[in-house]
């Protein structure tokens, strides 16, 4: 205030970097370090040789790029007695995830469409039960499902694990689509009914084309969820169909002599690669999916 007697303030206020601003960026940068350092360590470790790792300089860059750990992780690392790398797990995860995503998204879309526009009798009850079911820990269902699948001959099979993922994926996908279709004006539905279109025609020709954004979001949520699953794959997939996450854990826990940390980290990155790629290339959709899915809480 006293200064204004000397200088007459005029025009834009001189920008001064305040202590608050510095603190803000300091906080953001240290947070960014906390979140990125693990990824960085993962990558550099996977590119080092074991002698370098033994030097215990976890943050140091590798002396020279050495991709041999990646090769071993992909095709030669041992899980138990089998030494075929994580390649088989990658293939299994693809085979499990793709049909699970397609089927669950399709059913979820049909459910959401039927529930929001046709309102079949008991639809709300079913939706309520479905949402309640989503909250139940899987452990409650596991044993009966194992016995049931065994009785049907589906236990430890690819079809079995796909069915399990669809069953447990239904609540989220149904919720996403129901909430999405509720925002579409009902006049549109009424108009198409007046035009004589039936249940499936309205779904396929009007609603599905309008719900492309939701299809993308739902497919992405389901893809990352199923790809990252460990528990269901462990219980239902069987030895020959173990997904990548289970395979990864087995590889890391199999030690013959020295633990090969570079191979472990390479295998870990390989497992995280697909969901990370989805996330980095379509972050906004991903965020939308989280926000939409979290509303159910």
């Amino acid at each position: 205030m006293t200064r204004s007697a000397e200088i007459n303030p005029r025009g834009a206020k001189p920008t001064r970097i305040t202590a608050g601003r510095i603190g803000l960026y300091a906080f953001l940068i240290s947070a960014a370090l906390f979140f990125t350092v693990p990824l960085y360590v993962m990558i550099v470790t996977s590119l080092k040789t074991m002698p370098e790792i033994r030097a215990a300089r976890i943050f140091a860059l590798p002396d020279h790029l050495d991709f041999s750990a990646w090769k071993v992780a992909w095709a030669g690392a041992c899980a138990g007695a089998e030494c075929a790398g994580i390649r088989a797990g990658f293939l299994n995860s693809v085979l499990i995830t793709l049909p699970s995503v397609v089927i669950s998204v399709l059913f979820g879309a049909i459910n959401g469409y039927a529930l929001s526009f046709w309102r079949p009798r008991g639809g709300n009850l079913m939706f309520g039960l479905l949402m309640a079911g989503a909250l139940v820990p899987y452990q409650v269902f596991l044993y009966p499902l194992v016995r049931g699948f065994a009785a049907l001959g589906l236990y430890n099979s690819l079809i079995g694990i796909v069915i399990v993922h669809v069953l447990f994926g239904l609540p989220l996908v149904t919720l996403l689509f129901r909430n999405y279709f509720v925002t579409i004006p009902e006049e549109l539905f009424k108009a198409s009914r007046l035009d004589g279109a039936g249940f499936w025609r309205i779904f396929l020709e009007i609603m599905l084309p309008m719900s492309v954004p939701m299809l993308v979001v739902a497919a992405m949520m389901q893809f990352t969820g199923i790809w990252n699953d460990f528990l269901l794959g462990l219980v239902f997939a069987g030895r020959d169909n173990l997904p990548m996450t289970v395979q990864l854990n087995n590889i890391v826990n199999t030690t013959t002599g020295e633990r090969l940390y570079n191979v472990n980290m390479a295998a870990t990155i390989l497992t995280a690669l697909v969901p990370l790629a989805i996330y980095f290339f379509s972050g906004r959709w991903f965020v939308r999916g989280i926000a939409a899915g979290a509303v159910k809480g």
């Binding site: 204004s4 007459n8 303030p9 005029r10 025009g11 834009a12 206020k13 001189p14």
Partner: peptide, 18 residues
Amino acid sequence: NDVSDGEIWIEGKNVTWA
């Protein structure tokens, strides 16, 4: 709002930067 130029006086005080 930030101003680019000029002055604002309120009750006899220059408050352009206040």
